[in-house]
Each structure stands twice: as structure tokens, then as C-alpha cells.
Nucleic acid binder design. Structure first.
Lengths: 148, 148
DNA sequence: CTCCAAAGCTCTAGTCGTTAGAGGTCAAGG
DNA sequence: CCTTGACCTCTAACGACTAGAGCTTTGGAG
């Protein structure tokens, strides 16, 4: 007993959007940049998607959620279309991205520490505060050359 | 015995860039969007910066390095120009940003874990690999609805 | 003093991955 | 048949720069 959106042969863009959690505009964008192949059209020129599109878009969505760049996804899709190209390349892409993510985490952690420090130095509303946060920002500026 | 770049009254944009580590184009951009006040100009219409500009730009740079958005920096600069406005607001900005950074870290950490998992599932070049990374991306797509 | 390369100037457009809007067409239920 | 919502294309905006074209100014060497 298939519901309206499980009639997969003739899915309009809105149903595909709902199913995958990707916005309509974004789907059209992915088509425009060549991530999602152009689907067939209805007589009235409206896009009609099938199961293959759902799967491909889900793949794209998951990769985007993992923070892969559109370029990287293009490469991953090429690999998935062409398994003969082996997974060495896919592995390299994933590892490169993982390292990038690690890098970002490390950077953000030190930012967090510094933000925490300057935010707690001045907890707001205190009279002695002139203001510690602003001074921290200004001082660090000065400290790069030690000039006054 | 001041060197060329320590002659602060007449610093051209390139010297300011070198001193602060902010690119020339970015300095002009900051002026355009109103973060850095327009400096005086030479007879030939070239920007000439002084010490105040070095300090303000260093403040901006440090805040940007900490990941504050330009809008937030605009607010912080307003506060630093006008200390009477108290540090409550600065504190709120810093705390909000710290929380945002924490959020980002948490998200990235789970991404990292998943990337690690899929990257090590297929270590590349293995025959059995068909490929685990690509399957992981595809499967997750499918698992959101359990459909085949 | 004259010349030339480096550095400056303005203005425009491109980046990335969407998102939003204008202004129109199509499909389906009452 | 008519309305309403979903769809269509095309263009511009976001944030924070970055790059380039095409020009002028500056400052040191000859």
C-alpha cells in the first residue's frame, strides 16, 4: 500500500526534497553544478525523479553533512559510479578530510580556551572592569610587536 | 633610531599590512565596510596610517583570529570607543561566541569520529573493499528511511 | 633631473554553498 | 472552470575576503 510519496517513478521535486531533507532550491542547485543528473520532465516541464535520484541525493546529503566539499563529493560520486577506479582514491579523500576536520577542531579548541579565559576575566557588570575583554583584544594586538 | 616602518605618522598601506599581518586588500575592505576609519591621504591620494590605525587593526585582527564575525567586531569596537557602555555587552558577545565555538567543536568531533570509522573500515587497496567508504555514504542515505 | 619598477589607487567580478525573490506556468481538487 | 499551491527560470544576495584590469604615485639609482 504505497503512499503518495512512495510512488517513486514520478516524484516531483517537492517530494524528493521532503524525502531526503534537502531543500528544493538546493536540489536545483546540485543539478546546475552537475552533482545530480538532470531528471526527466513532465509534459509541463516539471522535474520527475525516480529511486536512483533519491539514492544519489541521499549520498550527497550524507557527504555534505560530513562536511565534504562539493568538489570532493563530485570525486566520490565518480568513484561510486565507477568502482573499478578502486577505493584508494576514496580513502585518500576521506583521510584528507578527516585530517582537515581534526585541524579545525584543534584550532577551535584553543579559541574556546581563550574565549573562556577572556569571558570569565570580566564577568560583566563589575566595577573594576574597564573592560577586560576589550583589553584582551587590544593587548594581544600590541603584544605582536611589544609596542605601546 | 627608528627604522623605515617605525616612522608611524606616514605609514603607507603596505607597511601597515606587514606590521599587522593583514593583507593590503583586506585593509581596504575593512575601510570599505567601516571597521577601520579612513586614514588621511598623501598628495597623490595614497593612504597614510598612524599608530591609532595600527592598534585598531591589531584589535580587529585578533578578534578575527578568534573567529568573531565582522558584525560582532563592529559592536566590540563601538564598546571600546565608548567604555561608558560597560562591559556587560562585551561579555555577552564573547560568551555567545564561545558557546557557538563549543557547538562547532561538538559537531566536528562527531564528524571526526564517523570519518575515522569509515576511513579505517576501508584502508585502501584491499581487494575486499567495494568500497566501504562509498557504501557508508550510500547506506546512511538509505537508512534515513529504511527503504531499499 | 629623469626614469623605472614597485607599490599604490579604484572598480569589478569571482569564490563557496546555498538562499531568497521576482515574475511567470502547471497540476489537481472542489 | 477556478483557485491554490507547487513548480519553473533567472538573478541577486549572503560573509569575508581575493584576484585582476587598468591606471597613477612614489622613491631611489643613474
Amino acid at each position: 500500500m504505497p503512499t503518495a510519496t512512495t510512488v517513486e517513478r514520478v516524484m516531483p521535486i517537492g517530494a524528493l526534497a521532503e524525502r531526503t531533507g534537502v531543500k528544493v532550491e538546493t536540489i536545483r542547485y546540485y543539478e546546475q553544478v552537475g552533482l545530480l543528473p538532470p531528471p526527466e520532465r513532465s509534459e509541463g516541464n516539471q522535474r520527475r525523479y525516480g529511486r536512483a535520484h533519491v539514492e544519489r541525493l541521499a549520498f550527497i546529503k550524507h557527504a555534505r553533512d560530513l562536511g565534504f566539499a562539493v568538489e570532493a563529493i563530485r570525486a566520490l560520486l565518480r568513484l561510486s559510479d565507477n568502482p573499478a577506479m578502486a577505493c584508494d582514491e576514496a580513502h585518500a579523500i576521506a583521510v584528507a578530510h578527516r585530517d582537515e576536520v581534526r585541524h579545525k577542531i584543534a584550532r577551535l579548541r584553543s579559541l574556546e580556551a581563550e574565549l573562556e579565559r577572556i569571558a570569565t576575566t570580566c564577568s560583566g557588570g563589575v566595577a573594576a572592569c574597564d573592560c577586560a575583554i576589550i583589553e584582551a583584544l587590544a593587548d594581544h594586538g600590541r603584544c605582536s610587536h611589544g609596542a605601546h
